[in-house]
Design a protein around this nucleic acid. Structure first.
Lengths: 226, 226, 226, 226
DNA sequence: AATGAATGAGGCTTCATTCAT
DNA sequence: GATGAATGAAGCCTCATTCAT
């Protein structure tokens, strides 16, 4: 759905004005390697090799290795949140908005798998200052608010705790980065299943969307970690 | 229930037979620091400092840093799986066993939060050979099988894909390591909510356990990442 | 005679293309220290100190300490063998070729004393893989073949065993690295004496070159080991 | 021929009175490993493992690793020299004494292959003080004196330089430690061939022992380094 | 923009040696 | 005589970063 997010080199003020083609290429390479090996296990040498320059030359683009992590992560964070906010603000009843949010989150995550992997797995490696600029709790709050709204509408089981439910939703959906590999199942299929499972799980029995879709075919999804 | 898992120093054959008190202390320290800073960002100096020896002295207990990660992770992996298998084998109908498994997994994870954090976050840092000794897919398979069984019983929505459902369950529950902090809510409360949410989400509308418990009180859970 | 052998950086592919001046300087320094203290007793610190950089900086030139040993040793090995093969292929009768080979070997060895010292004393410290690339037995074979040829010509005592004779020749000549110090006696004098002694020792009594040169003056050679 | 040389624990004054069985066992083990891997590459751990104690326990037998090297080397040095002196003092003409010395040296060396290997290869690793206690030049002098004597008798080619000839003899014979492996050829066969080759090489043509033995059968000797 | 060389700090690991028990 | 634990120094190697060209 999304995927056209492109970093505007948010607030690192690099000592240069790289043409944006090369800059994006660098970010993409860094993101890919961070996702594969982890931030700490990635060396600037790894990145420079793939970028086709000597490692010292990377300092024409960045001021520190940390910059790369931040740049990779910051834009997915912002855009992903914006994306969810847009969906959450649609003119639908709260339960449907919740469903849409789950769906949208899954699709966004898969559409930006490399970057979200880095965000979700390497978030803690950011400097405190930079982590503070990405209040990751906002995701939880956004969903918890929707749950609370639906609950106020009387649609949900009375014992649903919005915060806890939000964390369950985020856990299930974020976890996708751990096992998704393109091929078996489309992002949309996964998103639909997850939305149905998670949102139906909160609903009062008698209020559930009666008609469940007929079983969809598809190879069983693989899972590296799970 | 849990938590008395103690490593029998599985298959690293360290150059000694230390008294197990010190060995366990070392593993606990390592696990704690790995959980806090990540494996790669933890230095043997960090560990030695807390253990109260010079860093070279750690080699009385290990043969490489990697040993520490493996030892920490291997026992939680094994015991956690054994734990789930025991629960999954109970003499109950499949849906109840599924519920019990979700509950058991959450409780186990929280009871062993430090070690499961290391397992879930640093699994990829293990050497290939050692990773192969812990077929983490077994967790997914175990749950997927239960889902398939319940589905065969006609209890579940026909479009539930067992593998996908298992991954959703594991995502939601495993994610707990990202936000759980002792205090606000008991492990059992969380476990119950998760079990209800996730299992109910798979059930056919008319087959659901009618009586949902009245809302439980509790402070809203904090969440570092989520 | 020789001594212009310069490494073409045979097959270590270092992470750079240093100007060869510095590279040769490094190899020369390493060779000198290896020869003096032995490979194992030489530290990269020793080498870096003399090279004038921090020890970590050596890794611009090498990938491991082992590289240095290999580079030092590989080129003398190859060139020394080529040198002998050239001499052995001359258009002379076998006995004279043998004499020339002994002479040539001694002169080459002294002309490249530092490197041959390292080759002869530290050969076993090479990794198996690298040792395999230098079939040091070729020296023995080359000489044994010449001896066999001379024997087939009927020039040698019938009980001369070519392999054993070759080993005697190599032992006597290679041993030079243990005691030679420039000054007392010229490489050529030594070479001539050795050739006469060793080759005459194989000849049939009546076939020997009658005229022996008059005694040459010269200080008695010192000898550290021997 | 010899081989019953047993160390009297020359002058290391160890902090103990080990029963000599264990002490000899330790020296034998150390010698074997030093010969195989080199002194520097041998760890006390290696030795302790084979000796069947923990490495710290070795300090009941030695005061330092260096002690082991010295003890191993000192006794072969002394006994080997005494052996040669006895042979050199026999009541024979100088040329025959020379021949006997070459023979005796080769046999002794092979009979004590492990220890002589350590002596010949690791001599330089001894502390200066200890090296000084083993004037290895004595071997050279002993042989050079014999050569000079034979030369004074008019038996040798006039251009034979006694020192140089002695070094050739020592080189050829000492080198045996580099290639000898039991099996192919008896120590005595090798010794005879070497004596004939080296001594005949010094003789005046017309004075040589006419009858050379008929070719002896035997597999060709292997040679690791040579 | 890029190179090539170097820095400097620190990481993991090894190992001879000591010592209380 | 031996153990088990620890020391302390040092060794090899890595890597983010700097800088003159």
């Amino acid at each position: 759905m999304v995927n056209r997010r492109r970093s505007a080199r948010a607030d690192t003020a690099p000592p240069f004005r790289a043409d944006d083609g090369r800059w994006q290429e660098l970010l993409d390479i860094a993101a890919r390697i961070f996702a594969r090996k982890g931030y700490k296990s990635t060396t600037l040498q790894d990145i420079a090799d793939e970028f086709g320059v000597l490692k010292g030359s990377l300092y024409h683009y960045i001021r520190s290795k940390d910059d790369l992590l931040f740049e990779v992560v910051h834009s997915v964070y912002e855009e992903g949140l914006a994306n969810l906010r847009a969906v959450a603000g649609a003119d639908l009843d709260p339960v449907e908005r919740l469903r849409a949010v789950v769906r949208g989150h899954v699709v966004y995550l898969i559409d930006n798998l490399v970057e979200t992997t880095v965000l979700l797995h390497e978030f803690d490696q950011l400097s405190d200052e930079r982590r503070a600029r990405m209040p990751i709790r906002d995701y939880q709050t956004l969903i918890a608010d929707l749950v609370a709204e639906a609950k106020a509408d009387g649609r949900l089981k009375p014992d649903v705790d919005p915060q806890l439910a939000a964390l369950a939703v985020l856990g299930a959906t974020n976890w996708v980065y751990r096992w998704y590999r393109p091929g078996a199942r489309s992002p949309e299929e996964i998103a639909d299943q997850y939305a149905d499972l998670l949102v139906d799980g909160m609903l009062l029995p008698d209020r559930r969307s009666a008609g469940a879709a007929p079983e969809r075919a598809g190879a069983s999804p693989g899972g590296a970690t799970g």
